[in-house]
């Protein structure tokens, strides 16, 4: 069986949406197409009471995926005003359940580097971690996601710690990691059907284990994803 880029994005979104089934609240930052869709899916299919804190307001009700996940029109469909600074306060007070965070580098402790790396002595600059440093440290269940999976991204130890915290899950295009409390590091929880233990081992700098296959998205989930994002913008993340 072969999987298109869109299929792979759908698997990742579906997995993230299911992680929100019992969540109390969720926040996603900028440039977050997959979390955006996962939250919409979770609210529609599994958890209508899920509280969505967004950058532009409290509990948005978007009808489709915008090109910018902080697009102005989202603020028109919110239940209440919520300024960005207050969202950080919510997390600092320990009131934020799930936060979606991306990492340019992710290490086996679950720490993220979105700052910069040095390759052969030359600095390569990333955008910065946005709100990640605070949110990773203070949200109850950080979910880390990344659209690519290779040895430069999934490293033993990040070169710079932009954000430190304990991820609840890490969703990659090859697999899903969870945090093993006893070992104090990430372990593979499920492997996507187009990948394998061998591939993940080859493309991850830290030690990995074999694991069961990630369950597929349901018809209902796929139909909803296609409705929210008919043009397949969500593919960009994996390209």
């Amino acid at each position: 069986m072969s999987f298109t880029t869109l299929d792979k994005a759908n698997y990742m979104i579906s997995a993230m949406a299911r992680l929100l089934k019992d969540a109390e609240s969720a926040f996603m930052g900028v440039a977050s197409f997959l979390p955006f869709m996962a939250i919409v899916l979770a609210k529609k299919l599994y958890n209508p009471d899920l509280i969505w804190y967004s950058i532009v307001g409290y509990n948005p009700n978007p009808k489709h995926l915008p090109m910018s996940t902080v697009h102005p029109w989202i603020s028109k469909y919110c239940d209440a005003k919520l300024q960005l600074a207050e969202l950080f306060d919510i997390s600092a007070r320990g009131e934020l359940d799930v936060v979606f965070l991306a990492g340019a580098q992710i290490d086996q402790r679950g720490y993220l580097n979105n700052s910069h790396v040095y390759i052969n002595g030359k600095r390569v600059q990333f955008p910065g971690g946005a709100g990640g440093a605070l949110l990773h440290a203070t949200a109850r269940r950080p979910i880390v996601w990344q659209g690519k999976h290779d040895r430069r991204i999934f490293v033993k130890e990040v070169q710079r710690i932009t954000a430190a915290g304990k991820p609840y899950r890490v969703v990659s295009p090859l697999c899903i990691f969870k945090f093993d409390e006893k070992a104090g590091k990430l372990v593979v929880d499920t492997i996507h059907p187009w990948s394998s233990y061998e591939e993940i081992k080859e493309k991850t700098e830290f030690d990995v284990n074999d694991a069961p296959t990630t369950p597929p998205p349901t018809e209902e989930e796929i139909e909803l994803m296609n409705r929210i994002d008919p043009h397949g913008i969500r593919k960009i993340v994996l390209e």
């Binding site: 900028v30 996940t69 955008p127 910065g128």
Partner: peptide, 16 residues
Amino acid sequence: AGFVSFEAFGLAKNFR
């Protein structure tokens, strides 16, 4: 700053 980028349009090349 905490972040400098163009979201869907990639990295802020000149800043970088």
